[in-house]
Design a protein around this nucleic acid. Structure first.
Length: 586
RNA sequence: GCCCCCGUAGCUCAGCGGAUAGAGCACCGGCCUCCGGAGCCGGUUGCGCAGGUUCGAGUCCUGCCGGGGGCGCCA
């Protein structure tokens, strides 16, 4: 079912075509009508006529019978459009009747590979991994919901020179102790200890270097120990993912080691294509358009002078493999903004090599840093990076404290209280991350994100829970005057949008599809956040002015229950697409 | 030095080339015996600077200022 904006746009397009084929109607939401079409102004200039004249002709030509009540020219040549209430009612009704809330699947699904999270083996997950994980996960959920074929990829750092020292450290402390350290999640301790030995002990350093060679050459015992490190780290990652509530599973892991066997061929083929240049002993590709500090061409180093492969080689192998073997038609890299240049160079080289054909999209879904309230990179008091688990645990603790403040700890039973605190805390963290435009750095502020007031996760969850409470009242009604049949909410009545607040809510509901469309189109969950917040506040206004259970007559009550129910469904589904839970009580 | 991102109200953020630049928080004044105050009404303050393109610029272009990041063998 096409959404309202699309329908109106099509009709306007037809009208504009009669004046000048292909002219853009420039349809926009308006604060003085439901929509406004601004296209007449630009078109008038091209036709050498006055904007009002052109706008008048558009109004005369456009067919919006049954869709708009008023179509009129205003100001210098804007066409203001006011939807007919009956039309809104019908569309809302159709939405309410539809299991998918009138959200169409895409006609041509893409196979989208989404690369996100990518923690490093034997290293702590920290706030830096938060945004990638949360944003990537939400994008996956939305893409899946629209019917795309999504392949999640967790490109963990499980290969390379650090593993020499990590494995040697493993042999030093003994496997049993090492496994214990890794399993209690003291990854940073393990890594730092290895690092310390490496920096201070030349013998250890030499052993580490030798160990890297053994690892690269496939020595079975070395590989076995490597596997120990990787497996226990993955177990730890899974714990974090479980706390965070994301879709990633072990099946999604495609570590750097996975691409290792493909690296030689990457270099070989680049060479065969004549793209490889040897520079200072390193084998590089110089994609056009990239320069260094002296204005000289910037190399993408695929093979280092010591013969080892650079990470560019892995990234190229990955792109190639995803396209060739996985059949990706779109690749999304949810990676921090600082890596923009590196990724652009990889993409450019992959295109040069013909590994990314026309029609296959490769995109860097970049994001800014997480800042503390002091506007500096978020760090602990001691100055180290914040462990992700600590941050998540604190979120849940703080949410529980907020619940206690509100006295909910006496209303909800222990188990439910715990579940709600988790949903609230994690939801608050996710929402504060997702609701800011990706590219901006954003300020991490506990007070703000956990507030029930303003543009926060808890606000949305609370809005949803309160709507649910209306329906609990419906079911529990014992008072004869208050009693409403439970089927009232879902039986087939007309939706009536008589009050302005009802009409506004109807319009807001109908904006769901285009909000999802914008969010996916721009790969920005923040668009969906903004929509859901607007829907929640619009519902609040409606709820304030339009009694639901105490509506004046049965038809109105049914209609309003239907509106409430549909709002709750959109909120629930929308939060779900952001990776947030929507408890029915809190 | 070069490249990228960011600069909108006291604070956190929206603004897809179009009408008087919007929210939330905070602050001030009033209101509500309301289905769980996610309350309601009103008020105060803003596009870093300077040019340019355009009928029209917060939005596009150029330069500058300020903040962050990146710039060949770490990933």
């Amino acid at each position: 079912m096409p959404d309202v904006a699309t329908i109106v746009a099509e009709r306007l397009q037809a009208a504009f075509d009669t004046l000048s084929p292909g002219a853009d109607p420039v349809l926009r939401p308006s604060d003085r009508a439901d929509f406004q079409a601004n296209g007449a102004l630009a078109l008038a200039k091209r036709l050498g006529r006055t904007p009002r004249e052109v706008a008048d002709e558009v109004v005369a030509a456009v067919d919006l019978v049954g869709i708009c009540d008023r179509v009129e020219v205003s100001g210098p040549g804007f066409v203001n459009l006011v939807l007919s209430v009956r039309f809104i009612e019908d569309r809302v009704r159709a939405m309410a009747d539809d299991a998918r809330l009138a959200l169409d699947r895409v006609p041509v699904p893409q196979r989208v590979v989404v690369t996100y999270s990518h923690p490093n083996v034997a290293k702590e997950m920290h706030v830096g991994h938060l945004r990638s994980t949360v944003i990537g996960d939400s994008l996956c959920r939305m893409l899946v919901h629209l019917g795309h074929d999504v392949v999640r990829e967790n490109h963990i750092g499980d290969w390379g020179t650090p593993f020499g020292m990590l494995i040697e450290h493993l042999t030093d402390v003994g496997e049993e102790k090492a496994i214990h350290e890794l399993s209690v999640g003291d990854l940073s301790g393990f890594y730092q200890a290895a690092r310390a030995s490496f920096d201070s002990d030349d013998t250890f350093k030499e052993r580490s270097r030798h160990r890297v060679v053994l690892l690269q050459s496939g020595d079975p015992e070395t590989l076995r120990m490597w596997r120990v490190l990787v497996d226990h780290s993955i177990t730890y990652f899974d714990e974090v993912y479980a706390k965070l509530g994301v879709l990633l599973t072990d099946d999604d892991i495609r570590g750097e080691s996975f691409y290792n066997p493909l690296l030689a061929k990457v270099v070989e083929d680049l060479d065969a294509l004549g793209l490889l240049v040897e520079d200072d002993g390193a084998r590089c590709v110089f994609p056009p358009g990239f320069t260094n500090r002296h204005g000289d061409p910037l190399p993408l180093i695929v093979q280092k002078s010591d013969g080892g492969f650079g990470y560019a080689a892995t990234d190229l192998a990955c792109i190639r493999d995803r396209v060739d073997r996985v059949g990706a038609t779109q690749l999304l890299y949810v990676v921090g903004a600082p890596q923009a240049q590196h990724l652009q160079m990889c993409f450019a080289v992959a295109r040069m090599a013909g590994w990314v054909p026309e029609g296959v999209g490769v995109e860097h879904v970049a994001f800014g840093s997480v800042l503390g309230t002091d506007h500096r990179m978020l760090r602990t008091r001691a100055g180290s990076s914040v462990r992700l688990v600590d941050l998540l645990d604190e979120a849940v603790e703080r949410a529980a404290a907020v619940m206690a403040e509100r006295g909910r700890d006496v209303t909800l039973l222990g188990g439910e209280l715990t579940r709600v605190a988790r949903a609230l805390g994690i939801g608050a963290v996710k929402y504060s991350d997702l609701s800011t435009d990706r590219l901006r750095d954003y300020v991490f502020d506990w007070e703000r994100m956990l507030s029930f007031e303003g543009d926060t996760g808890p606000y949305l969850q609370y809005a949803h829970a309160r709507i649910c409470s209306i329906f609990r009242r419906v079911e529990d009604a014992t008072d004869a005057t208050d009693a409403i049949d439970a089927t009232d909410a879902t039986d087939a009545t007309r939706i009536a949008l008589a009050a302005p607040q009802e009409r506004a809510l109807g319009i807001a509901l109908l904006g769901y599809a285009s909000a999802i469309g914008a969010s996916v189109g721009e790969l920005s969950p923040s668009k969906l956040c903004a929509y859901l917040y607007d829907l929640a506040t619009t519902f609040t206004t409606f709820y304030e002015h339009c009694p639901v259970l105490r509506a004046p007559d049965l038809e109105t009550r049914k209609s309003r229950l239907r509106l409430a129910e549909t709002t709750a469904r959109v909120l629930r589904e929308g939060m779900g697409l952001l990776g947030m839970e929507a408890p029915e009580r809190m």
